[in-house]
Design a protein around this nucleic acid. Structure first.
Lengths: 170, 170
DNA sequence: CATGAACCGGACAACTGTATCCAAAAAATG
DNA sequence: CATTTTTTGGATACAGTTGTCCGGTTCATG
């Protein structure tokens, strides 16, 4: 139901929130979030245009979340790249309906409203702070019985990884 | 957020519920719901395959809602043409996440769940029975002070009501 | 059994979303 | 000022969605 673009934008936003206030290159984000690099660049450009992130060219540059994660809700991210368009007028152009939606479209629009509200009340900080074991996007190291195996795959871009705490699959 | 196909399918379903148990031709539905006839045929074919409506060829044929409107919820209609796909596994293929979604995808999937639940608990009958003034898809007659104007535009395919009132070109 | 009404299915066109590539512009650094 | 790093934007390709067209099939009716 949500577009691929929305998915990518959310991943990037969460990752940027993690790394804030450090600037991160799009390639870095692309690797960490497993999003096609070139396409991610376009998506991020939308976030820039929306004023959610700022970009800095050149060495040591990259993109940064402008506001603190507590002040950014995920509806803003979604709307920046692929706005949820509420139903404001009758899709059938029945002018006697006017602003008043018929029962069908009222229900559909209510669904939109629910999603909007849920997303508006969810901040990036909230997602990062989730008490669960794992950092949102990152692989979480599992404790291998015999091998020691605690080696970050890519030491060059530090991601805040985390220890699994015996959370068996539900 | 919902596809055009979903919108069309819902219109058709509501209209078929109105007209049940009479069979209605796709052309009839197309006109009443303002959906491109040829494309609507495809959409309806999906509803047939899903077992929601049955079709009958030849004169006096058409399509009919199989179950009574009280027993059909709109989630079934949506899923028949463009299924809501819940997030069951980590979209990043992080296998250590397994079945357990990260905080981000948990929220997104929760949004899907909310929509699913809302739609599952809404029947076609409920939409038809809405106490408001208007029959779901149809133009509603407004009381014009001076003009009497009660002329059905298209007498050949009876829809439950009509009367265009002073509709200036948009 | 001929006719017309209606659905069915495949082929095709147009448009949008997704994705890739590359050159240009901007910024830091020496 | 040259070089390197990075974003930016354009051109293009590919795929999925939306929409159209048409011949074929099924069915009721006389």
């Amino acid at each position: 139901m949500f577009s691929q673009t929305v998915e990518y934008a959310l991943r990037a936003a969460v990752y940027l929130a993690q790394r804030r206030p450090d600037p991160v290159t799009t390639e870095n984000i692309a690797q960490a979030t497993k999003v096609p690099q070139a396409y991610l660049a376009k998506v991020i450009s939308s976030l820039v245009k929306a004023g959610l992130v700022k970009s800095q060219r050149g060495v040591g540059g990259g993109v940064t979340l402008v506001r603190p994660p507590e002040d950014v809700n995920i509806l803003e991210v979604v709307n920046a790249v692929d706005p949820i368009k509420r139903i404001t007028t009758c899709p059938l152009d029945l002018m006697t309906h006017g602003m008043k939606l018929c029962p069908l479209h009222r229900r559909v629009d209510n669904a939109y409203a629910m999603v909007e509200n849920a997303f508006r009340s969810t901040t990036l900080a909230e997602i990062l702070a989730e008490p669960g074991q794992s950092v949102p996007l990152c692989e979480v190291p599992t404790v291998e019985p015999s091998s020691s195996a605690v080696v970050p795959a890519k030491p060059n871009h530090r991601m805040p990884l985390e220890v699994e705490v015996a959370a068996p699959a539900d």
